[in-house]
Computed example of a mutant assay.
Amino acid sequence: MSEKFITIKEFALNNNCPECYSKDGLRLTFKQKFIETKFYKSITKDIKNSIICKTCNTTIYPVQWTDDIDRVFEYHKKAFVPKKPSTFLKKLTWIIIISVVVIIVTVLFLLLYNKL
């Protein structure tokens, strides 16, 4: 089973980085969890966000956020629309389901036919 987070939306922030004080390096990223197995693919409702400075290559944790960064984060968080959670059944799953249904129908037909 493969679980990974896919980037859904990325925003460039115009705030100063708390580490290097660069004004054009901060990136706010929203990611959503994606699960893939042999039988299905699924987008979950688990969302992860992070702020990274591309200038100094550091992750900015919420403890380091200034009030301005916090306000901008809350604004983008409210505006962010995640993908709807969904599940896609793969071909193997459909083959198994159809096979089971055919076997059940065949057994029922044989049982009913033998009673007559």
Rank of each mutant, 00 (worst) to 15 (best):
Met1Lys: 10
Ser2Ile: 14
Lys4Thr: 14
Thr7Tyr: 02
Ile8Ala: 01
Phe11Trp: 05
Cys17Asp: 07
Cys20Gly: 08
Lys23Tyr: 06
Asp24Arg: 11
Gly25Pro: 07
Leu26Lys: 06
Arg27Val: 13
Thr29Gln: 13
Phe30Cys: 04
Lys31Pro: 02
Gln32Tyr: 10
Lys33Val: 04
Phe34Cys: 06
Thr37Glu: 07
Lys38Asp: 13
Phe39Gly: 00
Phe39Arg: 11
Lys41Gly: 03
Ile43Gly: 03
Thr44Trp: 10
Thr44Cys: 09
Asp46Val: 09
Lys48Pro: 04
Ser50Pro: 00
Ile51Trp: 04
Cys53Trp: 03
Cys53His: 08
Lys54Ile: 13
Asn57Pro: 00
Thr59Trp: 11
Ile60Arg: 05
Tyr61Trp: 10
Pro62Leu: 14
Pro62Ala: 12
Gln64Asp: 15
Thr66Ala: 01
Thr66Ile: 07
Ile69Arg: 07
Asp70Tyr: 14
Arg71Glu: 13
Val72His: 06
Val72Gly: 01
Tyr75Gln: 13
His76Trp: 02
Phe80Gly: 07
Pro82Arg: 02
Thr87Ser: 02
Phe88Cys: 02
Leu89Ser: 00
Lys90Ser: 01
Lys90Ala: 05
Trp94Ser: 00
Ile96Phe: 10
Ile96Glu: 01
Ile97Gly: 00
Val102Asp: 02
Ile104Arg: 04
Ile104Val: 12
Val105Asp: 08
Thr106Val: 04
Thr106Trp: 06
Val107Met: 05
Leu108Cys: 14
Leu108Asn: 15
Phe109Cys: 09
Phe109His: 05
Leu110Lys: 08
Leu110Tyr: 10
Leu110Cys: 11
Leu111Phe: 10
Tyr113Gln: 11
Tyr113Asp: 11
Lys115Arg: 15
Leu116Thr: 12
